Simulated assay, not measured.
Amino acid sequence: MELLSAEEISTARAVVAAMQAPTPTLRWPLLDIRLGLRAWVKHENHSRVGAFKLRGGAVYLHELMQREPRLNGVISATRGNHGQSIALAAASHGIGATIVVPHGNSVEKNAAMRALGATLIEHGDDFQQAREHAARLAIECGLHFVPSFHRDLVRGVASYWMEFFEASAADPPEVVFVPIGQGSGISACACARAVLGAKTRIVGVVSAHATAYRDSFRAGHVVEVPVTTQLADGMACRVPDDEALALIRSEVDDVLAVTDDEVAQAMRALFADTHNAAEGAGAASLAGVLQQRGRWAGRSVGITLCGGNVDSAVFARVLAGAAA
């Protein structure tokens, strides 16, 4: 995928603005002290669906309905936040959304998708199996299949990175740590950085128990890797997207891996220092900074709390210090 133009992002921001006000970009003194640096935190956990994905769904469905105004409905696969985004956007256009999730998916994310009007189907043991099933159902049922990575999804997500870079301009971050699920978040970060001419370095963060993007980044081609993470379901990618990987290899400085235990530590730190709840993937950015904080001591860095949709029982165990 090529980088987005300024016009592509500008028109996407207008679509997102009709559904979602800008989310905060904040500094937290306790977090700065913990890290020994200056941390800008982008709070996408404050969106209407508790995660950044709302933005991509809004733009994707807007463009889709312009092309196919008589569309019967859409179908997609998710571990939760993408599905909420598609369900909300589909409902705003008066069409149905079917979402496929793997067995054992987050109970509360499933409930949230149903509450947004989605028809939920459980299939497979991981996201990849759910995605393949959704693609088959799209053909069988005459539904439009919404992918997990697409230029219009990236356009929407880029709106939050534009907000981030604009809000942190007084002390521009030297580096930003970005979780990688299927690739829209980090791709959007690179596009916003390019449009604004920012010099911030980008470091991707994957789960140490789902290293497909890190391994593919290093190998120079798509590498399929089993997924075993128990906490960072938003990063549970087994097969990277070709287009996303190409952009990441072109624009990202490095990709590091954080364990479930490191993610749990970051979830606790975010709650203690900011009193914000983070899901596993939502805390991965901070987990990356905690792992690398000695390298960036005393400097300005960017963190994205990109989702707060953690099941209550899971969060209670994490806060109690249970092993991931």
Rank of each mutant, 00 (worst) to 15 (best):
T228P: 13
V225G: 02
R151T: 15
Y160C: 09
V178M: 10
C191E: 09
V178I: 15
F164K: 03
D233V: 02
S168F: 03
H150P: 15
H209D: 12
S184V: 15
W161Q: 03
V205E: 04
A167E: 10
A158H: 08
T200S: 14
F165E: 03
A212H: 02
L245A: 05
Y213E: 00
Q230R: 15
A167T: 11
R214P: 01
E163K: 12
D171M: 08
A208H: 05
A169Y: 04
W161M: 11
V227N: 00
M235R: 01
A244V: 06
C237K: 01
A192R: 07
E166Y: 06
V178W: 05
E243F: 10
R218H: 14
A210K: 00
A167C: 13
D171K: 09
G181T: 08
G204R: 03
T228Y: 06
G197M: 10
L245T: 07
A208L: 08
A170K: 11
T211A: 12
P173L: 08
V225T: 15
A236F: 05
V223W: 09
A167V: 02
D152V: 13
D242W: 08
H221Y: 10
Q182D: 14
A169T: 08
G197L: 12
A198C: 04
Q182T: 12
L153G: 13
V175D: 13
A198R: 13
F165R: 09
D171H: 11
D241A: 05
P179L: 11
V157T: 12
E163A: 05
A208D: 12
H150G: 14
D215G: 02
V239Q: 05
M235Q: 04
G185T: 10
E174F: 04
P226L: 09
M162K: 02
G183V: 04
A244D: 05
R151H: 12
I186F: 05
R218K: 15
V225K: 06
E174K: 14
E174P: 14
A236N: 02
P240K: 00
G234Y: 01
A219W: 07
V239F: 03
F165N: 04
S148H: 03
A194I: 04
L231C: 06
G234L: 01
F149P: 14
R214K: 14
P147H: 10
S148K: 01
D215H: 05
V206G: 00
R155P: 11
T200F: 13
A194K: 13
P173N: 07
S216M: 04
A198D: 03
S159I: 10
S184K: 14
M162T: 07
D233H: 05
A210R: 00
G156T: 11
S184D: 15
P172K: 08
T229S: 05
G181V: 04
F177M: 09
A194V: 05
H150N: 14
H150V: 09
F165V: 04
P179M: 09
M162G: 02
A158Q: 07
V176D: 12
S184R: 15
M235K: 01
